[in-house]
Write a protein that binds this DNA or RNA. Structure first.
Length: 664
DNA sequence: ATCCCTCGAGTTCA
DNA sequence: CTCGAGGGAT
């Protein structure tokens, strides 16, 4: 980026950041997520570092942010309440140590590592051991008097269990547990009040209540992180924490002293992994020089003391650019727009694509090609665009439109009026056929091990396979002649296919890939008709009579078996010697009539196996919890289903209970 | 017609 | 995991 561009960009970023600072700090009503905001500040910081002459003293990066609301009395802080510089990697920490070394602070023997709760900094004033005043950080110099509200917090002692004379100033973080956040938000929702975005905003909103009884109804927490020590009575940060604790002031119990950069890294990694286990939100750790004298010696630059850094966890969201939006054709012909992103690292892995689901989603987000977006991960796994930052548009963004023709086979795209998705109606579309064969080989269908997309693509491109029945006619020589295939792997492929010449009816029906027939419906159909022959000859009426099969599904199945193309495929299977194992019908075992939902990880078996055992005893396994569910089987690290079960009062059993249930 | 429960389908990276 | 939509109960 050249200087002219940088100037423009910096101006733009400054105005956007100021605007959002106002929304966030003064109105408690942010419009963009915290990480989106952080990303903006970060970019501005980088630019200002690159072009130091463009950095201005009134830049938002130079301010701590936030003017006090006029309703509260103003309080001047004893000394400026600063905020720490951020570090995002071990290199950043190393740079910090290098800068300290330049100041002649070398070979620091001890660091204090503390957890960084995501909350609000406050200052408490005690006179003669009695809590007399508390204030928010405000702009760093002047905060708001929220004494009455702070008095409602149980972990802030009204009287210190210690010194009974003189003035004492304590700083710390007020925060909210995740549980309490949910409770408050639920209550707000029921009252039709404003919903909070996250625990931090809720804590901020709660502290700024003009009526302390409202604050009291919300259980806020407090951990101290500093004791103002004007006459240097304490040697280390740890000493301060210990004396605070004896006075009855809590500090974070998980903080500890470490001796090296490696240990800092270890501490950070440990808590980054375990953060979910805590009942409050963490956004990183704070690393400080443990020795107070050295800490002071490091001094303050701008708004940030140099004796400590906030070592932030990898954000769960990151800012990136949508380079293109492309269309994918699925097995059923549904067209899915996928955003191709400028690669970005989120929580340790690099993300370059994210699904946009359908046109409705694109409209809801308002995303255009070239837009800057925030990408997170739904359920911690699947990349997902959470919001667009339209303020960063340059005017060169392009709207995305669905093509009129299938990008693969050029057939005209169709869309049912009341449905969201558009689709390619051509059942012979190569993209659809490919996906159909992948599906046939997939784990829950025929489970042909080692025959994945790559091999299937190669076989199709060579014209060796047109449909999934062709797989059973392949010979080792056929595959060997293809590029990239060695003798061994071709033999393995053939063996893997041959191993699946006896298959249970339910799996086979699922593998066929009939519209609206998934695993569960395939099982029900198999139980009901027992053989493929009977299923294939069933009338629409007979199909509709089956539990869970209505007119739409019945028609889809009926028409599938009617098509000559499919009849021919079934004949080929027969010719290849495929044996379909007859289904014995419904089992009336001891779990008959019981519905299970499985969540979390089990020790003694996979969830798949557990499901099979349940079904073999006549039980059902469902994917979502409702009041119809008999038991939720919870392994370790259960997901959201556990909470839902609790809320609905569904019986939750652990693995041990489950094993007993199987055996008795 | 309308709600609730389930199922189906699509999805990313290492 | 999440969304959309089919099936069935009301």
């Amino acid at each position: 980026m050249n200087k002219i561009q940088a100037i423009k960009r910096i101006e733009k970023l400054r105005s956007i950041i100021s605007h959002h600072q106002y929304l966030y700090h003064t109105l408690d009503a942010p419009e963009i997520s915290d990480s989106a905001f952080d990303a903006l500040v970060h970019e501005l910081n980088d630019l200002e570092n690159k072009f130091p002459d463009l950095a201005l003293s009134d830049s938002p990066t130079q301010r701590v942010g936030g003017q006090p609301l006029k309703e509260f009395k103003k309080v001047e802080h004893i000394s400026r309440m600063n905020s720490l510089n951020d570090a995002f990697s071990q290199e950043d920490i190393q740079k910090w140590l290098d800068r300290l070394a330049n100041l002649d602070i070398k070979n620091i023997p001890e660091f204090y590592c503390d957890l960084k709760m995501d909350g609000l900094a406050v200052e408490l004033k005690y006179v003669d051991g009695v809590f007399v005043q508390g204030s928010t950080r405000g702009d760093g110099l002047i905060g708001e008097d929220i004494t009455q509200n702070l008095k409602t917090i149980k972990s802030i002692p009204l009287k210190l269990n210690g010194p009974t004379s003189g003035e004492i100033y304590i700083r710390g973080e007020v925060f909210l547990t995740k549980k309490e956040f949910e409770r408050i938000n639920k209550e707000q929702g029921e009252k039709g009040g404003k919903m909070y975005a996250n625990p931090r905003n809720t804590a901020a909103g709660s502290l700024r209540q003009l009526d302390p009884s409202i604050t009291a109804s919300r259980k806020l927490n407090f951990y101290a992180y500093d004791l103002m020590d004007t006459d240097n009575k304490f040697k280390t940060k740890k000493d301060k924490y210990e004396i605070l604790n004896t006075w009855g002031v809590t500090t974070n119990p998980d903080g500890k002293v470490v001796n090296s950069i490696e240990e800092i890294e270890k501490f950070k990694n440990q808590w980054e992994e375990e953060r979910e286990k805590l009942d409050y939100e963490l956004d990183g750790i704070v690393v400080s020089i443990n020795d107070n004298k050295l800490y002071e010696q490091a001094g303050v630059i701008g708004k940030a003391p140099r004796g400590g850094v906030a070592y932030k966890f990898a954000p769960k969201e990151a800012k990136t650019i949508v380079e293109d939006i492309q269309i994918q054709v699925g097995r059923t012909g549904v067209l899915t727009p996928v955003a191709h992103l400028k690669p970005v690292s989120i929580g340790g892995t690099t993300v370059s694509r994210a699904t946009l689901h359908n046109m409705d989603e694109i409209e809801r987000l308002g995303v255009k090609i070239g837009d800057t977006v925030m990408v997170g991960r739904a359920g911690d796994v699947i990349p997902d665009i959470s919001q667009v930052l339209p303020v960063l548009r340059t005017g060169n963004e392009k709207d995305f439109h669905l093509p009129k023709k299938c990008p693969v086979c050029n057939t005209s795209i169709k869309k049912e009026a009341e449905q969201v998705a558009s689709y390619c109606p051509n059942t012979d579309c190569p993209a659809r056929q490919r996906e159909t064969i992948y599906h046939f080989c997939s784990r829950n269908a025929l489970n042909i091990d080692g025959v994945g997309p790559k091999i299937i693509d190669a076989l199709m491109d060579a014209g060796l396979v047109q449909d999934y029945a062709d797989l059973y006619f392949l010979k080792v020589e056929d595959i060997q002649n293809l590029d990239r295939f060695a003798e061994v792997s071709s033999a393995n492929t053939i063996n893997a296919i041959a191993e699946r010449k006896n298959v249970p009816l339910a799996r086979f029906v699922y593998g066929l890939g009939i519209m609206h027939v998934g695993e569960e419906t395939a099982r029900v159909l198999a139980q009901h008709f027992h053989t493929l022959e009977k299923l294939s000859e069933a009338s629409e009426e007979a199909l509709t009579a089956v539990e869970d099969v209505g007119p739409v599904v019945a028609k889809s199945i009926f028409e599938w078996f009617k098509r000559p193309y499919h009849r021919n495929i079934l004949k080929k299977f027969e010719k290849a010697g495929l044996k379909i194992i007859e289904d014995k019908g419904l089992v009336r075992g001891k779990l008959f009539g019981k519905t299970f939902v499985i969540t979390g990880t089990l020790d003694s078996m996979s969830r798949e196996e557990a499901g099979q055992r349940i079904r073999s005893l006549g039980g059902k396994v469902s994917s979502s919890v409702s009041k119809e569910t008999s038991y939720v089987l919870a392994g370790s690290d259960p997901g959201s289903k556990y909470d839902r079960a609790e809320r609905l009062g569904v019986k939750i059993i652990n693995e041990e209970d489950f094993l007993k249930m199987l055996h008795f």
